[in-house]
């Protein structure tokens, strides 16, 4: 974001640009997000259409990975049932930090049409894993998912990096104290 614009105004005659380390890291992270190739329900078909010729997801720098350990973000595309919920949690835990989650479609957001009588449907995937971007729709159009992807990139661009480990460690300490 804006990093490449600085090429037109280089520091000290050329060759050097000045910027924050956060900018460079976030720029790299947001422009090459790899996702976990993983479909759940109806939304997965729109997700496949997104990968295909008309919408071309790869222009966002998104490449499908079949292993959660290589993936940067996961798209929860469809209804999450209780039988599946534990697997999704495991998949999320297997992903390496930093990791992001896009919740695609009404079912993953809040249970969708199954909110009332769906005894086997988890009413919202945010009950088990943290979600960064919610995409509404049943199913969302691929354009809506594109917008969701752009929002995720904006979010990554704004994130703080410094002292994050320190802060996380402090939080862990606090949790330990509480739990003990």
């Amino acid at each position: 974001m804006g990093l490449l614009n600085k090429l037109d105004d280089p520091y000290y005659g050329g060759g050097i640009i000045l910027g924050k380390v956060e900018d460079i890291l976030n720029w790299g992270r947001s422009k090459s997000d790899w996702y976990l190739q993983f479909g759940l329900a109806c939304c997965a078909i729109e997700f496949m259409a997104m990968n295909a010729s008309h919408f071309d997801f790869m222009r966002f720098g998104c490449i499908p990975r079949t292993s959660p350990r290589q993936a940067d973000f996961i798209i929860i595309s469809g209804t999450v049932t209780f039988k599946m919920a534990e697997r999704i949690k495991t998949l999320y835990e297997q992903m390496a930090e930093p990791k992001y989650v896009i919740s695609m479609g009404s079912c993953a957001n809040s249970g969708g049409p199954y909110w009332e009588h769906g005894y086997h449907v988890l009413k919202g995937v945010d009950r088990i894993i943290p979600v960064d971007v919610y995409v509404p729709g049943c199913p969302p159009r691929p354009e809506a998912l594109e917008e969701g992807m752009i929002r995720l990139q904006e979010k990554i661009n704004k994130q703080a990096i410094f002292n994050k480990r320190k802060r996380l460690a402090e939080e862990e300490q606090k949790e330990l104290i509480i739990s003990n």
Binding site: L40, T81, M84, R87, E116, H117, G118, Y119, H120, V121
Partner: peptide, 13 residues
């Protein structure tokens, strides 16, 4: 059964 949403139960309601 990993996508069992039970449309039959919904249909009764």
């Amino acid at each position: 059964g990993y996508l069992h949403r039970c449309f039959e139960k919904h249909a009764e309601k």
